[in-house]
Simulated assay, not measured.
Amino acid sequence: MEFKPLARFIDRITSWRIPWAEVVVMHRNETVFRYRNGYADLEEKTAIDDSRIFNLYSMTKIMTCTAALQLVEKGAIRLSDPLPDYLPEYAEMTVRKTLPDGEIALEKAERAIAVRDLFTMTAGFSYDLGAPSIREVVQRTNGKVPTREFAAALAKEPLLFEPGTRWNYSLCHDVLAALVEAVDGRRFGAYVKEEITGPLGMLDTSFDLTEEQRSRLAPQYEYNDALGKPVRKDGNGYRIGTEFESGGAGLLSTVSDYVRFLDALTNRGTSPDGVRILSPAGVDLMRTDHLNERTRADFNWEHFAGYGYGLGVRTHISKAGSGSLSPLGEFGWSGAAGCLAIIDPDSQLTVMYAQHLLNNQEPYVHPRLRNIVYACL
């Protein structure tokens, strides 16, 4: 294995527009390469180090789907179960439909949202955190917005389509976190800590930071094209309440911490020291392509060509379509500030890439980084 091309790529993108970047490559549970470059704080010229905490954003979704899959494995829920069995507020949903004359009408949904629809982004939700019912719950709870309250508020909004008929990237996994709470009884963050991060020894992964951890939170940036440089933009716009543990975008972590979780999935659900978070069958169900003829056309992001969508993850289904050097069945997800997970049980390969830049250049960086990694093996 020779990883000089990967180091050169990190150097190139951090001299381009990304303030800092770090990558860890694990093979057969051993770290075979780790490299970082750039500044955690551009103004202070503080070099990036391995203790920095950053926003995972949508890479939270892998953790949320793992938590919910644990409940599937325990027989507490099934993918085919109607969501109203656990969250009664979803019993009477309406769907926004466009009539032949162009007018918008609200009609009663023909079928209930299924648990599967939450995993697979086919429930009919949007990603509109400014919807009237969401604004109302923020005000009514004095800015707390507990996770269950968020889900109850979202149920008041009309769906964009009949459940199960289309794919739309949305707030599905935030509702999935509320489902975990409803079924298990613990707050979602407590469940994650006690069932996943705690057993794996992940001490720096959570929805809320201690004072000491806040001192290690990396500044966040957004590239300003007019100025030709990154500008500071801290905060998580998806964290709309102090008690909202967003299953879709709320976790913070470090590279060292989150790679432990990813490697357990690479290891088909069990960490190198024997902590089991999922069964091999559960991992395989997660990385199975769950798109069908009706939903596949909606999963059309250019940099996901050749990939299907599993239970909260992209999953590689066509080398010809993707042009990727990774094997079929490689899976993972990414986050709004640019982090990336590559989970590959067949190659026994885990990659955790991190940066902290909104408008993150994901379509450029991620496919190239993945191909460089596999070419280096």
Rank of each mutant, 00 (worst) to 15 (best):
283 V>G: 02
236 N>H: 05
363 P>A: 08
269 G>V: 07
290 H>K: 12
155 A>F: 06
270 T>M: 11
131 A>F: 03
272 P>C: 01
271 S>K: 11
136 E>N: 09
170 S>T: 01
75 G>K: 14
189 G>D: 02
256 S>L: 09
372 I>W: 04
304 F>G: 03
365 V>Y: 01
336 A>D: 12
352 M>S: 10
263 D>C: 08
22 E>A: 12
338 G>M: 13
240 I>M: 06
87 L>N: 05
161 F>Y: 05
293 E>S: 15
103 E>V: 08
204 D>K: 04
1 M>R: 15
34 R>E: 13
335 G>E: 06
375 A>I: 09
179 L>N: 03
273 D>G: 04
77 I>D: 10
258 Y>G: 00
335 G>L: 09
224 N>I: 01
347 S>E: 14
186 R>S: 05
18 I>C: 03
195 E>Y: 05
192 V>S: 00
103 E>A: 12
168 N>D: 09
86 Y>C: 06
274 G>M: 03
102 G>L: 05
336 A>F: 12
102 G>W: 03
81 D>N: 07
169 Y>V: 04
163 P>G: 04
279 S>V: 14
59 M>A: 13
5 P>I: 12
292 N>F: 08
246 S>P: 00
267 N>F: 04
78 R>H: 08
60 T>G: 02
270 T>N: 06
262 L>M: 07
141 T>R: 02
350 T>E: 08
135 R>T: 04
3 F>P: 02
173 H>A: 12
225 D>V: 09
348 Q>I: 04
265 L>C: 01
306 G>N: 07
93 M>F: 00
134 I>S: 03
274 G>T: 05
217 L>F: 07
39 Y>T: 11
155 A>L: 03
139 Q>A: 15
137 V>Y: 00
154 L>R: 01
294 R>E: 14
307 Y>W: 07
307 Y>Q: 08
212 E>F: 00
118 L>W: 00
